[in-house]
């Protein structure tokens, strides 16, 4: 399988990365080189093989469903590019 410029633009949109026309051309070549390399996986017979979910067999850890942390609003917004009254500020999303 290989990607064309329309696919590169669609994937960039899904990934929320703005791309210029030059970027698209370069990425098309590079992505196709990588996809060409991974293509060889198709030749492996995986019939009856379970996909890997965890490299180390272990039981999911659980804890009591209680509050163990919190009251850290100052810390949470401390690194935000824009915040007000403990809210993250973003451009208007609803009219």
């Amino acid at each position: 399988m290989s990607v064309d410029t329309a696919t590169v633009r669609r994937v960039a949109r899904l990934a929320r990365i703005a791309v210029s026309d030059d970027d698209v051309a370069a990425m098309e070549t590079e992505l196709n080189a990588i996809l060409g390399f991974v293509e060889q996986l198709a030749e492996v017979d995986v019939s009856g093989v379970e996909p890997m979910t965890s490299v180390i067999p272990m039981e999911m850890k659980k804890r009591q469903d209680v509050v163990t942390d919190g009251e850290k609003a100052d810390d949470v917004v401390a690194n935000a590019p824009a915040s007000e009254d403990h809210f993250f500020m973003v451009p208007k999303v609803v009219e």
């Binding site: 990365i17 703005a18 690194n79 935000a80 590019p81 993250f88 973003v90 451009p91 208007k92």
Partner: peptide, 20 residues
């Protein structure tokens, strides 16, 4: 939104795309 660089955009999706 929560940390690091922000590049302003005309709407929120444009801000995401330009920032990234």
């Amino acid at each position: 939104v929560r940390y690091g660089l922000r590049v302003p955009g005309r709407d929120i999706a444009d801000m995401y795309e330009k920032t990234r």
